[in-house]
């Protein structure tokens, strides 16, 4: 553990250095506060509005987690389907891979049209942002399962259930977690976009309102919180991956 902390020291020091440059630079070059506010002002604004920010943050986090959860279940099921059915492998899989080239952002207004201004349109956008990475990476994980291991298991009398539980699923887990980590990072962006397209609460709404009022300190505090949320969700997925795939560490 101490080695792990040690390896993270350079990047942490660099972040502190950047923060110092931000704080000193804005004072030194007299940057207008509505372009880049002083970092200390951002923290002051964050503290002053802590209750409001807390309420908005909970909304956004809830949307992100709910969307991520639905995507995880649906994406995994889609991957299982693609793995089991050769027809789905030939039709659905290429479509899902191809669909990743569509700028998903442009589909978001459709979600608002279909699901309205309530929480479901935000969750739909989050799903749009996260479903594909989980489905594609998990499907790739299933494909990467070593067929020789499967053949060997068959000579030992393995049935379909054994093959799925003891060979396919463990083989697919690394791919699944790659997808989950990406999805965790995307989910906050999806929730924020959903809120921008129309909503009553959430950090996306907060930053948009603050931006309309040219309150740069408030915009930046929202942006910092959203970034922190994305990082935390990613780290949670990373932690889960390390806990489940503990064999990789040793």
């Amino acid at each position: 553990m101490s080695g792990k902390i040690k390896s993270n020291v350079p990047v942490l020091l660099f972040v502190v250095l950047l923060a110092a440059i931000w704080e000193a630079g804005t004072s030194l070059f007299d940057v207008p506060h509505y372009i880049i506010p002083k970092l200390s002002d951002v923290f002051v604004s964050m503290w002053d509005n802590r209750q409001l920010l807390g309420k908005h943050a909970v909304t956004t986090l809830w949307e992100a987690l709910l969307g991520l959860g639905i995507s995880t279940v649906a994406g995994t099921l889609a991957a299982v389907w693609i793995d089991r059915s050769s027809l789905a492998k030939k039709t659905i899989y290429p479509l899902i891979v191809g669909s990743q080239t569509i700028p998903i952002i442009v589909l978001s207004p459709i979600m608002v049209m279909w699901f309205g201004y309530e929480i479901w349109s935000k969750i739909a956008v989050v799903i749009l942002f996260t479903f594909f990475s989980i489905a594609v990476n998990t499907a790739d994980g299933f494909r990467s399962a070593d067929p020789d291991i499967g053949a060997l298991m068959k000579t030992m009398g393995a049935g379909k259930r054994d093959l799925l539980l003891k060979w396919k699923i463990p083989s697919a887990l690394p791919g699944f977690f790659t997808g989950l980590k990406m999805a965790a990072a995307f989910s906050v962006g999806g929730a924020t976009l959903g809120e921008w397209l129309g909503g009553e609460s959430g950090l996306g709404v907060y930053t948009k309102r603050a931006s309309n009022m040219l309150r740069a300190d408030a915009v930046f505090s929202g942006v910092l919180l959203l970034s922190a949320m994305g990082i935390l969700l990613f780290l949670a997925a990373l932690w889960l991956e390390k806990a489940v795939l503990s064999y990789r560490r040793s």
Partner: peptide
């Protein structure tokens, strides 16, 4: 399970320990 087949590659499961890899056939 009358045949013990040992393929060219070792085909060990990376997620299983030596103990659990060796026990696979018995388990099945």
């Amino acid at each position: 399970g009358k045949i013990g087949y040992m393929p060219q590659k070792d085909c060990l499961m990376p997620w299983r320990t030596v103990l659990d890899n060796a026990a696979l056939g018995l388990e099945l």
